[in-house]
Every structure is written in structure tokens, then in C-alpha cells.
Amino acid sequence: MPLAQSSTSVPVVVNDDLCIADKGCTVCVEVCPLDVLRITDMADGRKTAHMEYDECWYCMPCEADCPTGAVKVNLPYLLK
């Protein structure tokens, strides 16, 4: 069967201005039990963490362990 892409609003939000992925930090990506975060290139060439897959247990290690307070975990829309 052919595939389609459907949009979803994701619970984990990263503040690009605070994120230090550019300096090599990958703490949030490493600690996520469901491995849903990734580092990506932004339009201006800097790097930032972001939520790549909407598969979140909203357990919060990414927010708790982020050294700069850049990560915010919201509740997934379906259950909030």
C-alpha cells in the first residue's frame, strides 16, 4: 500500500537560542528512553535539537538533564 504523510503536533519543544547542539551537546538525544530526539541543521547553519518522532512518554529526562534549560516537555495533545 502506498504511504502518505500526516501532520502531528509534538510535545517536546526546544528553544533554539538556548540549545548548544552547535557546541556538540547531545544530552537530550542521549537520555531519551524512546529515542525520539535528533540534532538538525537550522536555516542559518547552526544546529539545534528537535523532536523527530512523535513517540513521547513525557517522562522528562530531556528537560531535566538539559544543561541550558532549552528543552520543554508539554503533554501530547491527545491526552492533555
Binding site: P33, L34, E55, C56, W57, C59, P76, L78, L79
Partner: peptide
């Protein structure tokens, strides 16, 4: 929500 489980998903 598939991952909104009681146990760690």
C-alpha cells in the same frame, strides 16, 4: 496515544 501508557512506553 500509543505512548501514553502506564508503563514506560
Amino acid at each position: 496515544y500509543l505512548y501514553g501508557t502506564y508503563e514506560n512506553a
